[in-house]
Amino acid sequence: MSAPDLLMPKPMFAQTVEALEQVFTVHKLWLAEDTKAMLADLADHVRFIAAGGHSHVDEAMIAGLPKLEIIANFGVGYDSVDAAAAARHGVIVTNTPEVLNEDVADLAMALLLATIREVPQADSFVRQGRWLAQDYPLTRATLRGRTLGIVGLGRIGKAIARRAEAFGLTIAYCGRRRQADVSYAYHADMRALAEAVDTLMIIVPGGAETRHLVDAEVLKALGPEGVLINVARGSVVDEDALVAALREGTILAAGLDVFADEPRVPPALLALDNVVLLPHVGSATVHTRRAMGQLVVDNLVSWRDGRGPLTPVAETPWPRIKA
């Protein structure tokens, strides 16, 4: 009996591909000379999709695969998969929560520290030989006395909060709802949170629901000593508004691991010296990528064997600025 057919739209972590090939017949869409022809040929066979972070699984693809039962997404964020369309077609979507919490939280704090203390700028200062002529200027910002507003106090948000508390930061948050078991100050919308803090940490899902959740009004509320850190999705922040806020001193600085049109970073951001830029590496360690890949495999195998999905996704609306 042949292994069941699985579609892989884009390349994935090599060990994940190897593991999937042991239990499925893997069809690599990105290698096809004619992707439409491959999808048509597979229409009556594919029951499984393994979707990497750069895959786009839209309603047209889902509708064109009438035997499709499950889409296993590599990553906790699944905005590249049309989960609403999948639900309409009776298709399960899974993601990879928990296994990346600690590495992403570590990176988030590293990016916060690098932004506040200008670590990349100081590194460049040394490499350029400028230290021979003068000391590096004192940084305007410090973590001392700051209040961190976490936008999205989920699994990763809580892991960030634990680390932030160890640095002496006061914590507040905005999320889908107030959490009964959390003692941090809760704010029901983004503007209220931004007004109450001087540092925003973004760790929410991407997609239409959270698009431009952080806009010019939120940045203005954050204020001239404000620091924005985004380790979520680039779409959550209005990039044009952010560039203007950084140029005009509306906020002090930003640290970004994600961008609206990755891997393309706006030249306007590249030209600024009060922003730290990373190439979307929040979960990018071998340890964590292995664990994420194994959870993709485990979800698909569990479904194949009739045990159901291990980590199905669920969606709830996000609060925006109230009128």
Rank of each mutant, 00 (worst) to 15 (best):
R211A: 06
V151D: 04
D58Y: 09
V91I: 07
G149R: 05
L132F: 01
V23D: 13
E165R: 07
G149M: 08
V276T: 15
A133M: 14
I49C: 05
A87K: 10
D41A: 14
V227F: 00
D198A: 13
D106H: 10
T288I: 06
E209K: 14
F259C: 04
L132W: 07
G282W: 05
L278Q: 14
A85V: 01
A164S: 06
A245T: 08
A284M: 03
R177I: 07
E33M: 09
I49S: 10
H54D: 09
R247V: 05
L310I: 14
A84C: 09
I156E: 08
G64L: 08
Y184W: 10
V214P: 00
R130C: 15
T139E: 03
V218M: 06
Y78M: 07
L42K: 07
G75H: 07
A108K: 04
L256G: 12
D298A: 08
A114R: 15
D58V: 06
A254S: 14
A87R: 01
L310Q: 06
R320K: 15
V91F: 04
L31C: 11
G152S: 09
S80R: 15
V265W: 03
M38R: 04
A43P: 03
D238E: 02
E315W: 05
P97K: 05
V276P: 03
V296G: 15
E239P: 06
A141P: 05
A172L: 11
D82T: 06
E239F: 04
E315I: 11
A122L: 06
D103H: 12
T311M: 04
V227L: 05
A185T: 11
A105P: 08
I251N: 14
H187D: 02
P312N: 09
D198R: 04
L39A: 01
L29W: 02
L6T: 00
T94E: 11
V243P: 03
R144F: 03
A260H: 06
A284T: 11
N230C: 05
V237Y: 00
V26K: 05
H27S: 00
E165W: 01
I49R: 02
L132C: 03
G149F: 13
D34F: 02
L242F: 00
T311Y: 07
L100R: 15
K67D: 00
L148H: 14
A141T: 08
E165T: 08
L6D: 03
D198L: 09
Q134F: 06
A232R: 10
K28M: 02
K28Q: 02
A232W: 00
Q134T: 14
I62G: 13
R177E: 14
P66N: 10
W303G: 06
S2F: 12
M201D: 02
Y136K: 14
D106Y: 11
D34V: 07
L148N: 04
V93K: 03
G207N: 14
R191W: 00
L112E: 10
M201H: 11
E98T: 13
L295I: 09
A50E: 07
Y136S: 15
L277K: 05
L310G: 13
V281L: 07
A108F: 06
S55A: 08
G226T: 01
L252N: 10
A122N: 03
